[in-house]
């Protein structure tokens, strides 16, 4: 828990713009990075980062200190991202949480090792970015919140407005989806990977 955020947010809530400017400086990189990876381009990420902070400023009177400021801020940012993806028509309406169909696929544990030893960091980054871009937004966001923002399941549940049990299952499916994507590309040559 970062009490400094909450103290600044309380001051910003009562109208102190300097306190809000400090919050922007503390979090602009995180929010921008999250939005960039959600949306895939810097221009949209830049616009939405600004929009998210402006919305946060306007909504701060409704913020309560019981809600961690960063969790609340990321709720705003992800809602903005989903709205844009929806307007673009790139939000996929897929079930993120239904149990997988019986006999759907081979057990991934029997699928053989991933080619991690053979890939250089640059290739691994390309592979991950490609996999993230191919994921439904709901999987992408939960992975980003966990792996990059290091949020606990409780914090992710609050940010996404879902139960912790759903965080647990969705995160597992999101990870499995990335690993499936890795395997799908693992058969290709390294040149294909960076294409």
């Amino acid at each position: 828990m970062d009490d400094a955020d909450e103290a600044l947010a309380l001051r910003a809530r009562s109208g102190e713009r300097e306190a809000f400017a400090s919050l922007v400086r503390r979090h602009q990189d995180r929010v921008f990075g999250f939005l960039l990876r959600m949306l895939g381009n810097r221009e949209d990420a830049m616009d939405l980062t600004q929009d998210a902070f402006l919305k946060a400023w306007n909504a701060l009177p409704g913020w309560r200190p019981e809600a961690r400021f960063t969790t609340w801020l990321f709720q705003i940012a992800r809602n903005a991202a989903l709205d844009l993806l929806r307007r673009r028509g790139s939000l996929q309406f897929v079930s993120l949480d239904d149990p997988p169909q019986q006999g759907d696929a081979q057990d991934p544990r029997d699928a053989g090792p991933l080619p991690e030893e053979r890939l250089a960091d640059r290739q691994r980054i390309d592979l991950l970015q490609r996999a993230l871009a191919a994921l439904p937004a709901g999987y992408r966001e939960i992975l980003l919140l966990r792996e990059l923002e290091n949020m606990s399941y409780t914090e992710i549940a609050a940010t996404l407005g879902i139960q912790e049990g759903t965080v647990k299952s969705r995160l597992a499916r999101a990870r499995a989806a990335v690993l499936d994507n890795y395997r799908h590309h693992a058969g290709r040559s390294p040149d294909d990977l960076s294409a």
């Binding site: 713009r17 990189d29 921008f32 980062t49 980054i125």
Partner: peptide, 27 residues
């Protein structure tokens, strides 16, 4: 180990920044 390798991949992602002080823009 696959899950751990995936987490390690995320750690490889370069940090991102808007490259400007947004506080001034937003102000």
């Amino acid at each position: 180990a696959d899950f751990a390798a995936l987490s390690a991949d995320f750690a490889l992602l370069p940090p991102e920044s808007p490259g400007v002080d947004l506080a001034g823009v937003i102000e």
